[in-house]
Design a protein around this nucleic acid. Structure first.
Lengths: 140, 140
DNA sequence: CTTTATAGTTTGATTGTCAAACATAATTAA
DNA sequence: TTAATTATGTTTGACAATCAAACTATAAAG
């Protein structure tokens, strides 16, 4: 019955999430940066310049927490603050060359992962998965 | 071409993961427990009694870190250590009634999420997604 | 202009985290 | 059987992550 499919889907999503979680942590370990620092670079890298407020929301941390994270990433030379000309209160956070390098490496890992994933699916299954994920991402 | 599908799939997976990440943190906020504490309860709850070592691996933390986490969760009455009769060195970690309540609530949230997700998919798409996720989870 | 709202920082306290040293029990080798 | 080795978990000391609350500075509204 339908309820069973729902249960199985829920469990599969949890399992998938858990595996991605472990995977991200393992990848981070190779970079010398913490998982959260990698996460920050990943978000800034894929979104482009972004203000503190929305960045804190994406990372699910308070502004205070983000301030010290960005302080450290700035000190280590991975990101920089750029005064927003439109709004004297705010900054845009963007990646330095060093940060971009990290992001590119990380992205390459993600492509490998996507390749691993598709290699156990047929072409139809892979495009079905892509299609479903796109719909889901629009919704949730 | 195929490379484009791979890129899109990679991006969709990242986006999906990011959204689940935010979702988990938002849910955790309602419980009074930290995200990591919820995560721990989630794993113990879905795996059943589990030893410290494999639990630390699933959480991607060292044993030292896990020791203090379990100390706190034991003190707050959510889990307990049970001496392993087979191996005098080890413990099994299991949920108390209080921990089980948290886990059930969390699981209900996950079912809601799965429902939200399926509501934007056809029956065929939903079962295709389930099928693909199962294959992927077996592989990665 | 004055008030209110928004963006970000600072501070103080707590939790999360690791690496390394430690304790104890199991396993292997002699 | 005893001694060396390995595996499981804890403790400790140092540092990073986190939050809430107080604070600064700019923007927007009245």
């Amino acid at each position: 019955m339908k309820n069973t499919v729902l249960n199985k889907l829920s469990d599969s999503i949890i399992e998938f999430y858990e595996k991605l979680y472990s995977w991200e942590h393992a990848i981070a370990k190779n970079t010398g940066l913490s998982p959260q620092q990698n996460h920050t670079i990943e978000i800034v890298g894929s979104n482009g310049p972004i203000r503190m407020k929305p960045l804190s929301e994406k990372l699910s941390v308070t502004m205070g927490t983000l301030t010290v994270m960005i302080d450290r990433l700035e000190k280590s030379g991975h990101v920089c603050r750029q005064k927003d000309p439109e709004d004297g209160r705010g900054f845009n956070i963007l990646l330095t060359a060093k940060g971009k390098t990290i992001h590119k490496e990380h992205h390459a890992y993600h492509l490998n992962l996507a390749e691993d994933i598709t290699s156990c699916l047929s072409q139809e299954e892979a495009s079905g998965l892509l299609n479903s994920l796109a719909k889901i991402n629009r919704k949730i």
